[in-house]
C-alpha cells in the first residue's frame, strides 16, 4: 500500500518535472534579481522590505498557480486520456491513487519552493550583504506558504475528482481568493442575523482560511511570530487537507470511469 502510493507520487513528480513545470523558476529568478538590482538604487532599509515582500509574494503566487494548474488535471486528465484504466486494473485502490497524486503534487511544490527560497535569500544577501537573526522569520513565512500550497493542492485535487479541468480551475481560484479573505467572511458572518448568520458561519468555516498563513507583511517588519500560531496553522493545514482529500476519495470511489 505505502509502496504503491510512493510510486504514484514519484510518477506524478516526474510528470511535473518533464512537463517543464520547474521552468517557472527561471521567471522567478529573473523577476527577483531584476527587483533586487532596481531597489538597490533606492534608499536604504526599504530595499530589504521590498525584496522580502516581493520575493515571498512571488513564491506564494507562483506556487498557487502551479498547484492549481497541475492539481486540476491530476484526476480528470487521467480519466479523459484513459491512462487511469491501466493503473486501476492493477492492484491499486482508488484512494491510493488519490493520496499518491496528492503527495506527488505536494512534493513538486516543496521542491519548487525550496529553489525559490534560495532565490529569495540570494536576493536578500545581494541587497543587505549580510544575514541577521530576524531573517529566520522568512523561513517561517515560507513554511506557512508551503502549508497554504498543501491546502490548495488538496482542493484542486478534490475538484479534479468530479469536474472538468476548466471548471476545477475556476472553483479552485475562487476558493483561493475567498480563502484569502476568510477572516472578513467570518467577521461578516458575525454581523449577520438569523438564518443568514448560520449559513455565512458555515461557509466561513468550510472555505479554506488562508489569511492566517499570510504573514509576509508582518515579518517584513520583523514582527515575531507566535509559536502557537505555527502549531495551529500546521494543524489547520493538515486537517483541512485531510478533509478535502477525504472528499476527493469519497467522490472518486463512487465514480464510473466512462
Amino acid at each position: 500500500m505505502r509502496a504503491r502510493i510512493a510510486h504514484i507520487a514519484s510518477n506524478t513528480f516526474r510528470e511535473a518535472v518533464r512537463d517543464r513545470v520547474l521552468y517557472n523558476l527561471i521567471a522567478f529568478v529573473l523577476l527577483l534579481s531584476g527587483a533586487a538590482v532596481l531597489v538597490g538604487q533606492i534608499s536604504i532599509e526599504i530595499e530589504k522590505l521590498v525584496v522580502i515582500n516581493l520575493g515571498l509574494t512571488a513564491v506564494s503566487l507562483f506556487g498557487v498557480v502551479i498547484a492549481i494548474f497541475i492539481g486540476i488535471g491530476l484526476v480528470s486528465k487521467e480519466i479523459e486520456k484513459r491512462t487511469l484504466y491501466t493503473v486501476l486494473s492493477r492492484p491499486v485502490r482508488r484512494w491510493e491513487f488519490i493520496i499518491g497524486k496528492f503527495f506527488g503534487l505536494a512534493g513538486t511544490l516543496v521542491v519548487n519552493t525550496f529553489f525559490m527560497a534560495i532565490g529569495v535569500f540570494g536576493a536578500l544577501f545581494y541587497v543587505s550583504h549580510k544575514f541577521v537573526r530576524a531573517d529566520a522569520l522568512i523561513l517561517v513565512a515560507l513554511y506557512f506558504i508551503i502549508l497554504e500550497f498543501i491546502i490548495i493542492c488538496s482542493l484542486s485535487l478534490l475538484f479534479s475528482s468530479f469536474s472538468s479541468p476548466l471548471l476545477s480551475a475556476v472553483f479552485a481560484f475562487s476558493l483561493f481568493v475567498i480563502g484569502s479573505f476568510a477572516e472578513d467572511l467570518r467577521n461578516f458572518a458575525g454581523m449577520a442575523h438569523g438564518m443568514s448568520r448560520w449559513l455565512a458561519t458555515g461557509a466561513a468555516y468550510v472555505v479554506p482560511n488562508l489569511s492566517a498563513f499570510n504573514i509576509i507583511s508582518s515579518i517584513a517588519h520583523e514582527q515575531p511570530v507566535a509559536g502557537q500560531l505555527v502549531l495551529q496553522n500546521t494543524l489547520y493545514a493538515l486537517f483541512y487537507a485531510s478533509m478535502a482529500l477525504s472528499g476527493a476519495v469519497l467522490i472518486f470511489e463512487r465514480r464510473d470511469l466512462k
Binding site: Y240, S246, L250
Partner: peptide, 11 residues
C-alpha cells in the same frame, strides 16, 4: 472517507 471528512472539518 466520510468519517474522516467530518472529523477533519470539525478539527
Amino acid at each position: 472517507a466520510g468519517a474522516c471528512m467530518v472529523l477533519s472539518l470539525v478539527a
